[in-house]
């Protein structure tokens, strides 16, 4: 998945993956490995984004965030997590 696709995709957690919120972002865990992944998303993404009906694009509009570089950085991080099978696109 590339970052453009990631902007318009809806995401859920992959099987066996977990996520929790930290002050600076979201911490993901997958039991295979096990492996840890951190995205420094600050308050921009919350846990309920995953498994919601919102794409990143829709989510950011909902939150009133229109900053293009922010959107691209988040999309890149999500695409990377999808490639690593931590999250899955619906």
């Amino acid at each position: 998945m590339d970052k453009i696709e990631a902007v318009y995709s809806r995401f859920g957690l992959a099987k066996g993956a977990q996520v929790r919120a930290e002050e600076r972002g979201l911490l993901f865990y997958t039991a295979s490995g096990p492996r840890l992944f951190f995205i420094p998303s600050g308050p921009l993404l919350s846990l309920d984004f995953f498994g919601s009906n919102w794409s990143l694009s829709e989510w950011l509009i909902l939150k009133g965030i229109g900053d293009v570089p922010v959107r691209q950085a988040l999309a890149e991080a999500l695409a990377d997590l999808e490639t690593k099978e931590v999250i899955v696109a619906d």
Binding site: R20, E23, L36, F37
Partner: peptide, 16 residues
């Protein structure tokens, strides 16, 4: 990034 967050102290252990 994770290391920086960890050095500041995560909200809880990742594992025990």
């Amino acid at each position: 990034m994770l290391i920086d967050a960890a050095r500041e102290g995560l909200s809880a252990p990742v594992n025990l």
